[in-house]
Design a protein around this nucleic acid. Structure first.
Lengths: 163, 163
DNA sequence: CAGGTTAAGTCAGCCTTGTTGACTTTCCAA
DNA sequence: TTGGAAAGTCAACAAGGCTGACTTAACCTG
């Protein structure tokens, strides 16, 4: 336990750490609550949300790309993509250079649902940021990034940064 | 959008908010990764972890208590409790005053598994806190608390605070 | 150009964990 | 004392993870 730098502030009891853990648990439930409600109306789940989010984020992304980003198996992802394609929210195009690949794009209605989901989630995030204050936002982001596994962190960093 | 106080720091683009959302997603995966590995060895899932955690936190808690704390249905919780009781990690005692109630306690081996899970999760949390620095921890907690739904927030506040 | 590798998709089958609805036991108040 | 409400249990189902094996098509290299 390397608490040498800033000992007075960095000495955290197990109880304090436990509160942090519980905060993470309860906050994540709030974080997913709004999208969950919207998804339920459409008969979808979180898996669909994640696919929609990252296809919107990186239009033309391949199945393999999504697999490593989401850290799930082909079967799980495929089931979700298939329903999204059948429902006309996602379009799958055969790769231009490499015809084995499938490039994923959101359709008009896909973009619509993505916006509905993102608006709800951003609204909560914006409210939380506002309530917590500007300095808190920096700290929030720093701790979250430090909590990621290296693999996830790499994926996170690769998503194009704002500004 | 009420950005009147601290406008320069509180004006966040949708892109910046999106990065916050993605950070939350990736961080939560890291957050659960260590316990998931331990649980898998024992043939359990996250639901078991949550039950164990909150029974340890509030020994003697009732099923109803756990239900509102965890926000799941009776059956989901019951299934988990049943296996934990069968496996001898949790003990269920008929309520003293109200015999309809069941008071839950961790057994010796329940306490053992709880410690293993908590140690792993605390280690990651401690490392993240250390990497992010002391000021970041405050901000992290503030944003998380602001992100909870009021119900969840109430439950969170009721859990006895350290010190 | 033959053969191995890779991307994607599929099938079968499993598990956890969420759901609803019906049911018992127990308590309490009219 | 009885009828409703509350606590807990159970049956059955669905979503969405997982593994492993397999096919098809395209690519690439010796």
């Amino acid at each position: 336990m390397d608490d040498r730098r800033e000992p007075s502030l960095l000495f955290l009891t197990d109880e304090q750490l436990k509160k942090g853990i519980e905060a993470m648990y309860f906050a994540y439930r709030g974080f997913t609550a709004d999208p969950d409600r919207i998804l339920a109306k459409h008969g979808y789940g979180r898996a669909h949300h994640r696919a929609i989010h990252f296809i919107h984020r990186s239009p033309g992304t391949t199945v393999n790309n999504l697999l490593s980003l989401l850290g799930v198996t082909k079967q799980s992802l495929n089931r979700v993509l298939r329903t999204l394609i059948e429902d006309g929210l996602v379009e799958s195009r055969v790769g231009k250079r490499d015809k084995r690949e499938r490039n994923m794009y959101l359709t008009e209605s896909g973009i619509e649902l993505e916006a509905e989901l993102a608006d709800a989630q951003r609204a909560r995030m914006r409210a939380a940021y506002r309530d917590a204050g500007p300095e808190a936002v920096q700290g929030f982001r720093m701790v979250l990034e430090a909590m990621m596994d290296p693999d996830q962190r790499r994926h996170f960093d690769l998503l194009k940064d704002p500004e």
